[in-house]
Simulated scan of single mutants.
Amino acid sequence: MKTAISLLIILISSLGFSQNDKSDTITIKGIIFSEVDGKPLGNAYINYTSKYKYSMTNENGKFEYKYLKKKKDLNEKIEISALGYEKYDTIIDLNKDDIIDLFVVLKTRFGLNRQKALEDINQGEINILLSGGIAPVIYKGDKKFTKKYQVNFIEYGCEAISERSLIEYNQTVFEYLDKKFGEKWRKEIRDDVSGL
């Protein structure tokens, strides 16, 4: 009988604690999008600064985090980042709702997109962007290609560039080259150019 009463007391106590824990838990969730194509952005990091905790978006750009709130917590600074995108910071009020939905569009670093490519073309700067490592890679035929088609190869080296923005920028330049030179340039360009 003592064992049954002890188990009942433990069960009631744990239910009481779990209810308190539930009221102190806030669900922070959302979807992160890329400004390049408006599609969800996988592998974006969400940093909850006061907790030193992270979560990450899935392939659909979604994330969810159960935030255990302490009594003194009033708000939380959240930093969202992804490779090749500008960091986004926001502060959320922890006393407002039990579920907080965030919908964020991340901007690309360097503003590389279709619009930037069109602006560069209009200014006579015909650039083909390369994503590389620390040391730039230069091929034997690069000098001949750039002179013949009046383009520049720009390599960002170890700077993180969004692959989506790189492709969108380059594809806009490729449309320009197709109109000006036909498609013969495609057989002469180096193989490691994104967006071909």
Rank of each mutant, 00 (worst) to 15 (best):
M1G: 15
K2Y: 15
A4N: 08
L7C: 10
L7S: 11
L7A: 13
L11V: 11
I12T: 06
S13Q: 12
S13I: 12
G16F: 11
F17I: 14
S18A: 11
S18T: 08
D21E: 12
K22R: 13
S23F: 09
T25D: 11
T27I: 14
T27Q: 11
T27W: 05
I31N: 06
I31C: 08
I32C: 00
F33R: 01
E35S: 04
E35W: 02
V36R: 00
K39F: 08
K39Y: 10
G42T: 04
Y45M: 12
I46R: 00
I46T: 00
N47K: 09
M56P: 02
E59G: 10
E59P: 08
N60R: 15
K62R: 12
F63A: 00
F63P: 00
Y65A: 07
Y67I: 01
L68F: 10
L68D: 14
K69D: 02
K71I: 06
K72D: 06
K72H: 09
D73W: 02
D73F: 02
D73Y: 02
L74T: 12
E76P: 01
E76W: 01
I80M: 08
A82I: 00
G84P: 00
Y85K: 00
K87Q: 05
D89K: 12
D89G: 08
T90E: 11
I91D: 09
I92H: 02
I92D: 00
D93H: 07
L94F: 04
L94D: 03
D98F: 08
I100L: 12
I100P: 01
D101W: 14
D101F: 11
F103Y: 15
V104A: 03
K107D: 06
K107H: 07
G111N: 13
L112F: 08
N113W: 03
R114E: 15
R114Y: 09
R114I: 09
Q115N: 14
K116P: 04
K116Y: 09
A117C: 04
D120C: 13
G124F: 06
G124V: 05
E125H: 15
L129D: 04
L129T: 03
S131K: 04
S131E: 07
I134G: 15
P136S: 13
V137D: 10
Y139R: 13
Y139K: 13
K140E: 15
K140W: 12
K143C: 09
K144G: 09
F145E: 07
Y149Q: 03
Y149V: 01
Y149F: 12
Q150V: 10
V151Q: 09
N152M: 11
N152D: 14
F153S: 04
I154L: 14
I154D: 14
E155N: 14
E155G: 14
G157H: 10
C158F: 13
C158V: 10
A160E: 06
S162A: 04
E163W: 09
L166Y: 02
L166Q: 01
Q171V: 03
Q171Y: 01
Q171W: 01
Q171S: 03
T172I: 01
E175I: 04
L177M: 12
L177R: 04
D178P: 07
K179C: 01
K180N: 06
K180E: 11
E183F: 02
E183W: 01
E183D: 08
W185A: 00
R190V: 03
R190P: 02
R190T: 07
D191C: 13
S194I: 07
G195E: 02
L196A: 08
